[in-house]
Each structure stands twice: as structure tokens, then as C-alpha cells.
């Protein structure tokens, strides 16, 4: 697990065993508990303000850096994906798509604002701007079917606008979540911005969705009961809920600037204009 820039073991002392395609045991993983999650929220909350105050350009550079570090260790990730059942070709493709996707979102960091914001016409001597701001602390249940691309596709669009996040990695393909945390740890991402838990979704969803200090939640999957529960729980503090189902995470449909704006809030602000109309030059 990766919480607040550190690699703690779960406070619960529990673990689960990962198996490869042949059914052989390959690793014991921490089975994260609600208290691990609680600690992660505290870290994410602390990290949110400084991270969202960084310039878009700087966040962009840091996302590029994650991509670079991932590229440097691609052999390891290919190997881990193959251990979890991918063929060589599939593993190659997943790692390369993951690197590309990080670069894709890095590029959007200082651009999504321009295409999503506006200057609104108003009657009066004012500018009226609508701009986007990050929502805050976001929890996410990463897709179960992909180990690496799932994590990357969830984390990148959330953090690029300045949110901090707590992500539950795929339970059955958890192996490379820890290696990916190591990549993040060596990529200038401040501790607490990205927190990765491993464990059981069904157990953690109630906490991911009820925590009052979480502002938004992303669920990737199609379990009807979970979706229903998340929607009900989110009403407690009006969390913004994003559900993603039936997406092929390897395809281009899994990346879009709209994935960034899903985790932002719209703010409209008024600013006086010195002069307006034909009487003279204003700004």
C-alpha cells in the first residue's frame, strides 16, 4: 500500500494471496482496512491544498515524470503483468498504453481549462468568468480487469487538475500496484496526492462512499449493488459521483479531457471593467 508518500503495512495485519494463471502463489498483499483508508484521507486532505496551488505547468511536468519513470521500469511491469496472466503481447501493449496515457493527461494539464472555461456575456460593466477548480479529495475504485492501465487511467485525470486521491487497486491484479506506487514515489509527486490501497472492494466501498471528508468518488465496474450503495451513501455529504462501466481501458475511449472535468467544480466570478461600450477603450 502507498499512503502519504510511505509504504506502510496495513494496520489490520491482514493479507491476501495473489496467484498466477497456473494457480501458483506469487505474492502476499496487504488487505487494507477502513482505518488504512481513514489515514489515507487525512494524508490526501493535507496534500490537496499545496498540490492544487501548484501551477498547471508544474503538475504537467510531474505527470511527464511519472511516464518517464514508468518507461524506465517497463521490463518489470511487463513481467508482472505476464505473471498475472497477460500474454507477452498484451503486457507490452498495456505498459506502452499506460505510458502514453500519462503523457496524454500531462499534455492536458495546462489546456483543459481553456476549452472548458468561458467569459460570459452579462449586462453591466463586469467581466464574468466561469472557471474550473479541482473538487478536492477523490476516492476511486479502479477497474478490476486491468492491473496497470486501470490504475493509470483512473489516477491521471483525477490528479491533473489538482485533486488528491485514494485509489483501491484491482484486487485480482494487485501485483503491479505496488510497483506503480514506487514509480510515483520517485516522480516528484508530493506524498499524499496519490494514495493506493490494496484490498477488497466490497469491504471498502461503504467507507469510500460515506467518509464526510471525501468530496467525490469514482467507481469503475458494473456491480449494480455497489453502484446503488455508492449513490445512496454519497447523499450524506453530496459527493460528486462518477460511474464508469463498459469501458475498454486499453482503447482511446478510455481517455478524454472530459474525464478531467468530471472531477472539477465550476466557479463563476465577477470582475469590474473600467469602461465599456463605445465611450472609450476599456481593456
Amino acid at each position: 500500500m502507498y499512503i502519504g508518500g510511505k509504504f506502510p503495512r496495513t494496520e489490520s495485519g491482514r493479507y491476501f494471496t495473489l496467484k498466477n494463471a497456473k494457480g501458483e502463489e506469487i505474492a502476499n498483499m496487504c488487505k487494507g482496512s477502513r482505518k488504512d483508508f481513514r489515514n489515507a484521507v487525512v494524508e490526501a486532505r493535507k496534500a490537496f491544498e499545496p498540490w492544487s496551488n501548484k501551477t498547471a505547468y508544474n503538475r504537467s511536468q510531474i505527470l511527464y515524470r511519472i511516464a518517464e519513470m514508468l518507461e524506465g521500469r517497463k521490463a518489470q511491469f511487463i513481467d508482472e503483468l505476464m505473471q498475472m496472466g497477460s500474454t507477452k503481447k498484451q503486457a507490452d501493449e498495456e505498459v506502452f498504453t499506460s505510458i502514453d496515457r500519462l503523457i496524454y493527461y500531462a499534455g492536458w494539464a495546462d489546456k483543459y481549462q481553456q476549452i472548458s472555461s468561458s467569459v460570459n456575456p452579462v449586462s453591466g460593466a463586469f467581466f464574468n468568468f466561469t472557471v474550473l477548480e479541482p473538487t478536492g479529495v477523490v476516492t476511486a475504485i479502479a477497474p478490476e480487469e486491468n492491473g496497470l492501465i486501470g490504475l493509470v487511467s483512473v489516477i491521471a485525470p483525477i490528479i491533473v487538475s489538482g485533486n488528491s486521491c485514494i485509489v483501491l487497486a484491482s484486487e485480482s491484479k494487485a501485483l503491479c500496484s505496488v510497483s506503480f506506487a514506487e514509480v510515483i514515489n520517485s516522480s516528484d509527486v508530493p506524498g499524499g496526492v496519490i494514495n493506493i490501497l490494496t484490498g477488497n472492494a466490497e469491504e471498502l466501498i461503504p467507507h469510500f462512499s460515506t467518509h464526510m471528508d471525501v468530496n467525490s468518488m469514482l467507481y469503475c465496474g458494473d456491480d449494480k449493488k455497489s453502484i446503488q450503495l455508492i449513490k445512496e451513501n454519497s447523499a450524506i455529504n453530496l459527493k460528486r459521483i462518477v460511474i464508469k462501466k463498459d469501458i475498454d481501458w486499453m482503447k482511446d475511449e478510455a481517455e478524454s479531457p472530459y474525464f478531467i472535468t468530471k472531477f472539477t467544480e465550476v466557479k463563476t466570478t465577477w470582475h469590474p471593467i473600467e469602461k465599456i461600450g463605445a465611450s472609450g477603450s476599456g481593456y
Binding site: 467507507h207 460515506t210 467518509h211 464526510m212 471528508d213 450524506i236 455529504n237
Partner: peptide, 9 residues
């Protein structure tokens, strides 16, 4: 309440 709390409230 059973829910973890936020300073906001």
C-alpha cells in the same frame, strides 16, 4: 453516525 467526519462540518 458511523461515518468518518470532515472539519468542514
Amino acid at each position: 453516525t458511523g461515518n468518518y467526519q470532515s472539519k468542514d462540518y
